[in-house]
């Protein structure tokens, strides 16, 4: 698998505080990577490191296969667009002037793409309105537009929906999806709003206390979080035969444990297994959301 970003045992200390502690992650090309963690877990620190705003204390990372200690890392950075914490925009300039300024910083010879970029983020009608008079959502979208200057392949968004109203959240979400699907831009998006992330992400990385606790694809996470019945049975071979005959979707976890994903009456299920000589030792219904998965992953009540 091609990775846009990989980090290897990254550490970042602020005096005696370890913001990142041996952090390793892998962002696949074309993914929307949901970076999940509570406040202070180290999400923004990681983003600052990969954007070159800060240097790691130890460990390293590669962007498009180029190590951060290599001088060519600056070329890789030109393929990145990022919104770190708050949108980086000149408040006394209009949306168009802000984009022109970023074009100059990038050394782009023509401003011809700017109207299209403004349209993409829904700011084409802002005219001479200064950014200081924009709503939070408009500023966020302008920040994303600036990050998109120079057609980056990799977009890094740090808490892009924080403080947005419901309409703003929908707009930003649709924009991210559009960029990923239409322009094949890889997106790393950090958030602690799990419900919102679950609507976007194709991959997840869970961070806690500066460490990556779990890295999982959305498909695997969905399987892990799907509503299911977990059974403990006496004979797994019989169990699989019965499930196949009943055409039920299931997943074997061990010699004695399996999950059944299809809704089925318990009586029919138990009777079918008993008829073949397979005892049901225990049975629990599981209904896990991304939120409960996250809480169970990083320590449950300790983090509530």
């Amino acid at each position: 698998m091609d990775y846009v970003l990989t980090t290897n045992a990254l550490c970042k200390n602020y005096r005696h505080f370890k913001a990142l502690n041996g952090f390793s992650m892998h962002v696949p090309k074309g993914a929307i990577y949901g970076f999940v963690g509570k406040n202070g877990a180290g999400k923004t620190t990681l983003i600052r490191l990969i954007c070159g705003l800060q240097e790691p204390t130890a460990g390293d990372y590669t962007l498009y296969g180029i190590n951060n200690t290599d001088k060519k890392i600056k070329d890789s950075r030109r393929r990145i667009g990022a919104v770190v914490e708050t949108p980086s925009i000149y408040l006394n300039m209009t949306a168009e002037e802000n984009l022109k300024e970023q074009y100059r910083i990038l050394g782009l010879p023509s401003f011809a793409d700017i109207p299209e970029l403004l349209k993409l983020v829904g700011l084409e009608d802002t005219g001479r309105k200064k950014a200081k008079n924009f709503s939070l959502g408009m500023r966020q979208r302008l920040g994303i537009a600036i990050a998109l200057c120079g057609d980056p392949d990799f977009l890094v968004l740090d808490e892009p929906i924080n403080g947005l109203d419901p309409q703003g959240i929908i707009e930003v979400r649709e924009l991210i999806l559009k960029l990923n699907r239409q322009k094949q831009i890889t997106v790393l998006i950090s958030s602690h709003i799990l419900d919102e992330l679950s609507r976007l992400a194709t991959h997840y990385g869970f961070i806690d206390k500066g460490r990556l606790v779990k890295e999982i694809s959305a498909r695997d996470l969905e399987n892990a979080c799907r509503k299911c019945i977990r059974l403990e049975v006496s004979d797994m071979k019989v169990f699989t035969r019965v499930m196949d005959s009943l055409r039920l979707e299931y997943h074997v976890l061990s010699d004695t444990q399996a999950d059944i994903f299809t809704k089925e009456t318990i009586t029919r299920l138990v009777l079918s297994l008993a008829k073949e000589g397979c005892e049901v030792l225990s049975l629990t219904e599981r209904d896990e959301s991304l939120e409960s998965y996250y809480v169970s992953l990083i320590g449950g009540t300790e983090h509530e």
Binding site: G52, L53, K74, S76, R77, I80, A82, V84, I105, A147
Partner: peptide, 8 residues
């Protein structure tokens, strides 16, 4: 940040 992110 915009200047640093793009590699200046």
């Amino acid at each position: 940040r915009n200047k640093l992110i793009v590699g200046h």
